[in-house]
Design a protein around this nucleic acid. Structure first.
Length: 509
RNA sequence: GGUCCGUUCGUCUAACGGUUAGGACGCCAGGUUUUCAUCCUGGUAAUAGGGGUUCGAUUCCCCUACGGACUGCCA
């Protein structure tokens, strides 16, 4: 392919970006990198009424956390700025005017109230009002009004919008990179507002003007835009511009059926919908995020990448660089996908077990800090190495090895009942004496195991007859990694102390 | 309602006219293990329905059903 590919991700700062938006950004990014092109971030803030102050930072921080980098953005700048549509306001008007001059657009003076009335009248008759080629002939606009009337209304400062004049009998065709050929008859299209009464362009105008000015070659966006793609194609044609290639991505659906994923689904179904946690500034409601739930960003983008795309091989674990190498729009599916929380956890597990003990230990240290437990990093590193394969998230490590930091004083009654026999205290005391013989510096898993096995052989007993009780004194229950390794990490002194305590305190009743 | 888009195991998906319809997650069973996990092995489970086209359809076409998106001076 050519090497001047330019794509953009263009969110609107009306709230947090959810995982569907992140995936769109990711696919744009992958496509750009794959083709040695540029990836641009543009903020579509033409709707003043829905602007949410903290949303923009949220979007930027989210993408940053994911490792999705832009070549041009509001933070980074670039040769095609500004990257806020609100700062490009002055650019749009002339194109709207040009369309009016060429007869492809017209002034409409109908107020929102008038249109609302029409809509509800139609609705009460079971019909839908559409401002189209039929309706425009009966409403207050520069098609029905004389030039003089229009001029005087304009001069008097009457509010108006500019609408596209959809051709009466034509067919708009486009080829979508994912869906193939699509055609729509113009009689099905409506005269969308291009320029609002408040002096701002609508999405439709702004997006094609900016995409043209920013020399965007491929528009990769969500499927919700598919119905308006013909309108955009028409606009490019009317302005004598070359339209970019389109690729409409399938939607991310609710895990339990009906409809596209929405912000409340996460808390309802127990998985995050947002990359980072989000507090709604208006309602104060909080929504959880992937980062805050303990997902690694690498796992998160891997999960997202596979929701709608796959390499066609059996490889499932992909770094960002590998994704760049293998990604292609041809391998993006057509149908919507549901998010699978179980598989998401599995992905995180895969990344967790591949990380070094050191890195996991460092992350785990912060949750220890929160619990007010101070520990040596080398000790934590060893403890973590024993259990990292059995958890999906760093925060779950605590449940596995809390006994490493807090000696048990209570014992699982079920295990006591089953494994703490009449002769157990005596046997354990003898084993303790064996351990006492080992020099503290030789208190290794290997030596402890040898001492234990020798002891059992001498007594003609099996492992099962002592290990559970031993574990009970050290752990307080019947779970956990290898006792010999656990004992080594805990150290001779601590092990003997716990055994003694257990022998003296565990009783069957 | 209208327009457009979609439909392979429960979920993510592979198979771009010829496969016993493959893999992964989940689930179930067995094995390993001092315990709980991990891990290993095996199993369960799908082409929405009906018509065509074809020697042969998951694959191409049509209809039906179902699902979804859009239908704002929102993006």
């Amino acid at each position: 392919m050519n090497n001047n590919v330019r794509v953009r991700f263009a969110p609107s700062p009306t709230g947090p970006l959810h995982i569907g938006g992140v995936r769109t950004a990711l696919y744009n990014y992958l496509f750009a990198r794959k083709h040695n092109g540029s990836c641009i971030l543009r903020i579509e803030d033409t709707d003043q009424t829905r602007y949410v102050d903290s949303a923009e930072d949220y979007i930027l921080n989210s993408l940053d956390w994911c490792g999705i980098e832009f070549d041009e953005s509001l933070r980074k700048g670039g040769d095609f700025g500004p990257y806020h549509q609100s700062e490009r306001k002055h650019l749009y008007r002339r194109y709207a005017d040009k369309l009016v001059e060429k007869g492809h657009a017209y002034y409409a003076f109908d107020t929102q109230q008038e249109l609302d009335v029409l809509r509800s009248e139609y609705e009460s008759q079971g019909k839908t009002f559409i401002y189209n080629q039929t309706a425009r002939k009966e409403l207050r606009n520069s098609i029905t009004l004389s030039n003089d009337e229009v001029q005087s209304m304009l001069e008097k400062g009457e509010p108006y919008v500019i609408r596209i004049k959809i051709p009466e009998d034509d067919t708009v065709e486009l080829t979508d990179l994912i869906r193939g050929h699509i055609s729509v008859h113009t009689k099905e299209m409506d005269d969308k507002v291009l320029y609002k009464a408040d002096g701002m362009p609508t999405y439709h105008l702004a997006n094609i003007v900016d995409d043209h000015l920013m020399e965007i070659t491929h528009v990769i966006r969500g499927e919700e835009w598919l119905p308006s793609a013909p309108l955009h194609v028409l606009l490019y044609k009317f302005l004598d511009w070359k339209a970019p290639a389109f690729a409409h991505l399938p939607l991310l659906l609710k895990p339990d059926g009906a409809g596209k994923l929405s912000k409340r689904d996460g808390d309802r179904l127990g998985f995050p919908v947002f990359p980072l946690k989000w507090k709604d500034p208006k309602t104060g409601e909080e929504y959880m995020g992937y980062r805050d739930s303990g997902y690694f960003p690498e796992a998160f983008i891997n999960i997202l990448a596979f929701l709608g795309w796959n390499p066609g091989t059996e490889k499932e674990l992909y770094t960002l660089d590998e994704l760049i190498k293998d990604f292609s729009l041809e391998r993006v599916g057509k149908s919507g996908s549901r998010f699978d929380p179980d598989k998401a956890r599995w992905f995180n597990h895969q990344y967790l077990i591949r990380k070094s003990d050191r890195e996991i230990a460092e992350r785990f240290m912060t949750s220890l800090d929160e619990k007010g437990i101070s520990a040596n990093i080398h000790f934590v590193e060893k403890a973590v190495s024993l259990v990292k394969e059995r958890v999906n998230f760093v925060r779950e490590i605590w449940d596995e090895i809390s006994f490493m930091f807090i000696a048990p004083t209570e014992y699982d009654p079920k295990v006591v009942k089953k494994k703490w026999k009449e002769h157990t205290p005596g046997l354990l005391s003898e084993l303790l004496e064996q351990f006492r013989q080992i020099d503290p510096s030789d208190f290794t898993a290997e030596n402890i195991e040898e001492a234990t096995k020798d002891f059992l052989a001498e007594k003609d007993l099996g492992m099962g007859q002592i290990m559970n009780a031993f574990r009970l004194t050290i752990v307080g229950g019947n779970k956990g990694p290898s006792m010999f390794h656990t004992a080594e990490i805990l150290g001779k002194e601590e092990v003997l102390k716990r055994m003694e305590y257990g022998i003296n305190h565990i009783s069957r009743d």
